[in-house]
């Protein structure tokens, strides 16, 4: 039984239980996201995947697809809202791309490129977030955290280590590590943990490999994330 919904006027087939975003990706259709990862249950925090389903705003990563649903995603209205969400993330942290090792491979930056975010519009918050370079193999630069919790989830659900957690709340929410000292070197974090390879931005960086791939030759330097993501999944 082939069930389908409409995404921007074109049919997308889905199986029972698939979310809008999952079904779209499986059909080769891209819906922007940051906190969503194919190997993890939906998280729904970044809200970049907002779409209008039957006229109502919903998170495409979390809402199961339903027969006959009319979904709007790649529209000026929704893309405008996505751009504003990116602008919010850019003013929240300290995203100084020219000095970031992740530049060109960063999903936040790539989304901003594709959604044509040329400025952050709002006033910058310039938070003070010291880095943690204590670990022999890994550097943590909290300035770039977007609270997708992928490291939290990977460490908890796959690595079984619970290295990362979020504490406080609201705008004061921040990432902490599993040690009374607050230092990564006092945890059992290892460079081959899944959590060390899952950060979509430049928080969790491996030491001694910086800039091995030159700027200008990186994942999103020439190809938009919508294409890269589809090539990866096919």
């Amino acid at each position: 039984m082939n069930r389908e919904f409409m995404l921007d006027g074109l049919p997308v087939a889905f199986t029972e239980g698939q979310t809008i975003l999952q079904a779209a990706r499986a059909a080769g259709r891209y819906i922007p996201s940051l906190c969503w990862h194919p190997d993890f249950p939906p998280h729904g925090s970044c809200k970049l995947c907002i779409v209008k389903a039957n006229g109502r705003h919903v998170s495409a990563c979390a809402l199961p697809a339903r027969e006959g649903m009319e979904v709007e995603s790649d529209t000026p209205e929704i893309n405008g809202e996505r751009r504003a969400l990116l602008q919010m993330l850019f003013v929240e942290g300290n995203h100084f791309c020219p000095s970031c090792e992740k530049s060109g491979n960063c999903q936040l930056q790539a989304q901003a490129y594709e959604l044509e975010m040329t400025s952050a519009r709002f006033d910058y918050l310039f938070p003070v977030r010291p880095v943690d370079a204590s670990h022999p193999d890994i550097l943590l630069d909290f300035n770039r955290c977007i609270f997708c919790e992928l490291c939290v989830r990977a460490s908890r659900d796959v690595d079984g280590k619970h290295i990362f957690a979020l504490t406080e709340r609201g705008i004061h929410k921040h990432l902490v590590v599993n040690a009374e000292s607050g230092r990564l070197s006092d945890t059992d974090f290892a460079a081959d943990d899944l959590a060390a390879h899952i950060c979509p931005v430049g928080v969790i960086l491996h030491k001694r490999v910086g800039f091995q791939r030159p700027i200008g030759q990186r994942d999103y330097d020439h190809e938009p994330i919508s294409q890269v993501a589809m090539e990866e999944s096919s």
Binding site: P98, G104, E116, I215, H222
Partner: peptide, 11 residues
């Protein structure tokens, strides 16, 4: 003004 993707860079 609208930059084509190839010219859109923050770095």
């Amino acid at each position: 003004p609208r930059l084509p993707y190839s010219l859109m860079h923050f770095d």
